[in-house]
Design a protein around this nucleic acid. Structure first.
Length: 399
DNA sequence: GCCAATGATTGAGT
DNA sequence: ACTCAATCATTGGC
């Protein structure tokens, strides 16, 4: 017990440190040892035994309270002494008891909360975009394939692709650098807190489970920062994608072959150029474009044809000649008839819509024009596109 | 650089 | 949901 001497000498009577008497919780304990001098031998005999004990505990608490006021060396020495104090186990058990009574346990601590759905979404997106996960750049490839599918076949856009890829990898590297920083900081902080708690567990009851819980809390705090990082990364990727994939900016003309296929269909169904869903799909397949591109094309074509029939006369003739020379297609390789026949087949031969006569004279309404009525509607087109077809598919312009 | 052609988008109408 | 009509934005020929 000799080693206690320097410690007890620093008791409340030495005039420094926090005024323990000011501490409400400490008052009862500290008030027990008014005399500044106390016995250090820890004698536990006689009627003074109770007073002795209280004084010892009071000393320990006093030291704990004043430890922050001391220099590092001083504090270290004191800490060591505290740990060796004979009353420490008693104080420890008291603290355990108090803790038990005050319910400072983790009974009501909610554990295992489900993973944040937003974070899951962000993770999935980053993974899909190739920002998170393995390097290979699957996201870039996916974006590229999406770009090509929406804008038709554009094999010559490797320049833009590489540009996209480099920008994406830039985002990726920034993301990973920042993520690493956060993870490092998180690990450091967690280790620090765990060490502190382990150290403290020598003087106060700290269960491993509580340490674990503290780690969880720290991780949760850090993960909110991480979520922010992921969110802004996602935003950056979205902006990049939208710029890169903006089909309007990166329009590519369809291939000659595709245009030919579409024109063939258009002019061979001039009286009712509204391909059915099936026909659109087939055309899309044949042309290497999407169904909506087929719809766009037909929409544009109808409008532009109607607006300036004269201009398209030559083209119409050309395709009329062409299709007249080609034997009627049968079977699966030709798109189904639009909403016209309902039989599910159509012929590309001139028998259906095409007029194979002499190109009309200026100002005169030609057989080609017959498809378009004066009111601006396609002749016979009086029903919704996906419904049944007008019956007059081939009645008006063949003679 | 100009300009027509052309694919895509948008808003209204059905 | 589909089409029309107007418009935008880009392409490609000159």
């Amino acid at each position: 017990m000799l080693q206690q001497q320097p410690l007890t000498g620093n008791g409340p009577s030495n005039g420094r440190g926090l005024g323990m008497s000011g501490h409400p919780g400490m008052h009862a304990l500290t008030s027990a040892h008014q005399p500044s001098q106390h016995r250090s031998d820890g004698g536990d005999s006689g009627p003074e035994n109770g007073h002795e004990t209280r004084r010892d505990i009071g000393d320990i608490l006093q030291q704990i309270m004043t430890i922050t006021d001391q220099s590092l060396d001083e504090a270290q020495a004191k800490k060591h002494a505290l740990n060796c104090h004979r009353m420490k186990p008693a104080l420890f058990s008291v603290l355990c008891e108090i803790k038990e009574k005050t319910g400072l346990s983790m009974r009501n601590a909610q554990e295992e909360e489900p993973q944040d759905p937003q974070l899951v979404r962000l993770d999935n997106m980053l993974l899909a975009e190739g920002v998170a996960g393995p390097e290979k750049g699957g996201g870039a490839a996916a974006a590229v394939s999406a770009a090509t599918s929406s804008g038709g076949m554009s094999p010559d856009s490797s320049l833009e692709h590489s540009d996209y890829k480099s920008k994406l990898s830039q985002i990726r590297s920034i993301y990973h650098t920042e993520l690493e920083k956060y993870e490092q900081a998180c690990t450091e902080f967690t280790t620090h807190v765990m060490n502190l708690l382990r150290e403290q567990s020598r003087t106060r009851p700290v269960t491993p489970r509580e340490i674990e819980r503290m780690v969880t809390i720290i991780h949760r705090k850090f993960s909110s920062i991480q979520t922010q990082l992921k969110q802004s990364t996602c935003e950056a990727v979205m902006i990049l994608r939208s710029r890169f994939l903006d089909a309007r900016r990166k329009r590519r003309n369809f291939s000659k072959q595709a245009t030919e296929v579409l024109n063939e269909y258009f002019y061979s169904h001039l009286s009712n150029p509204y391909p059915s869903e099936e026909a659109k799909e087939e055309l899309a397949k044949n042309c290497g474009i999407t169904v909506s591109q087929v719809s766009n094309w037909f929409g544009n074509k109808r409008i532009r044809y109607k607006k300036n029939i004269g201009k398209f006369q030559e083209e119409a003739n050309l395709y009329a000649m062409k299709t007249a020379l080609v034997p009627p297609r049968q079977g699966n390789d030709s798109p189904h008839t639009p909403n016209s026949t309902g039989s599910g087949s159509f012929s590309l031969s001139g028998s259906a819509d095409l007029f194979l006569g002499v190109p009309p004279v200026n100002g005169e309404q030609s057989a080609y024009q017959m498809g378009v009525q004066a009111n601006g509607n396609w002749q016979g087109r009086n029903s919704p596109p996906s419904g049944t077809s007008p019956h007059s598919d081939h009645s008006e312009n063949s003679d």
